[in-house]
């Protein structure tokens, strides 16, 4: 019983400490330090952006050239695949005596 009362007492006393701290005051040089920090950050930013671009520019250009080469190669490969497919279809059409080239057929029809 005594123990419980004692704990309750301590809890109450502790809860009373909420908001008991004396407020702090910023010192006279707070703004001066802040200004210095802002200037430092701005200087670092101005230095960082151009230097980063200068450092990364060759790599960005190389990457763009690489992407172009890969795109061209893919386009050529897909083009040759199409022509192989076309050859296959023509062979099939010939085997079954089908009209294999619509362009030729049209030309002949119009010529007649």
């Amino acid at each position: 019983m005594l123990r419980k009362k004692h704990v309750e007492n301590e809890v109450e006393r502790t809860m009373e400490l909420l908001g008991e701290d004396a407020p702090l005051k910023a010192d006279a040089f707070f703004f001066t330090r802040l200004q210095a920090r802002i200037r430092e950050e701005e200087a670092a930013h101005h230095f960082l952006v151009p230097s980063l671009w200068q450092r990364w520019r060759p790599m960005v250009l190389a990457a763009l050239v690489g992407v172009n080469i890969i795109t061209a190669a893919l386009w050529l490969v897909s083009g040759s695949t199409n022509s192989a497919r076309e050859q296959g279809l023509n062979a099939l059409a010939e085997d079954y005596a089908l009209v294999s080239d619509i362009g030729d057929w049209l030309y002949e029809s119009l010529g007649e």
Binding site: D21, P23, L24, K25, A26, F30, F31, L34
Partner: peptide, 14 residues
């Protein structure tokens, strides 16, 4: 800054 520095400092400290 001068109008709010003490309050901000106290919030951060708490």
């Amino acid at each position: 800054v001068e109008a709010h520095q003490d309050r901000v400092l106290n919030i951060c400290f708490k």
